[in-house]
Amino acid sequence: MSSASEPVIRVRGLVNRFGAQIVHDGLDLDVYRGEVLGIVGGSGTGKSVLLRSIVGLNRPAAGTIEVFGQDMGRASAAQREAIEQRWGVLFQDGALFSSMTVAENVGVPIREHYGISGGLLDKITALKVTLVGLPPDAGKKYPSELSGGMRKRAGLARALALDPEIVFLDEPTAGLDPIGAAAFDNLIRELQRNLGLTVFMVTHDLDTLIATCDRIAVLAERKVIVTGTYQDMMAFDHPWVREYFHGPRARAALATAAE
């Protein structure tokens, strides 16, 4: 599945600037169906901006973004809405609606777009809640009653509510303890395999990169300077990439992964 070479997301010549500050300048990126792509880069290199540009929360200054072959810049409102239902987004802190329970949060897109309610909605949301590894009674809780890790899982359950084909994850393991982060890595990998997801992940976590990502794209100098596997990164000659993938933390992460 992951070897299919059909790009589901094609970014070409993306330019983003905020005032005088240029974040992206002619950025190109392909995301292939069924892969887990990790986006890394130093602070301020525009990883989150790239994610927000693709999902339409940020209007790029120039460039094209194609999702499922549809140019998002030229899509009509209806086409955009149809595509939006084929992806799910997990924000950094879950971005759950604080006035709703977890189950209600997960049910929001299902109810909103398909008008499903009552017992069937309860059954579907209960499944999503257990699917992301939350205990069944977590569905009745409010986001403020959950730990950070549970909030992320709940956010993931909401992102998965409509069985999306692409899932965008913004720093999924940031703020989790190593055990929780490792469990979340496994969960992403497992769900990706079981549901055939394409995963676009912004992360800083080297363990996550090793454990879950098929490919890695490095943002630096306002574009994607290299994409490839972890091994490719190790061989790539660029000061930042070398420092990142050969630093003490990277060595430690590799050592753990090798065990």
Partner: peptide, 18 residues
């Protein structure tokens, strides 16, 4: 096979709610 996998996944995750 993919449909059966999904059905298995649902079966495995259907815990009885309290």
């Amino acid at each position: 096979e993919s449909h059966l996998d999904l059905l298995r996944l649902v079966t495995a995750n259907e815990k009885d709610l309290a």
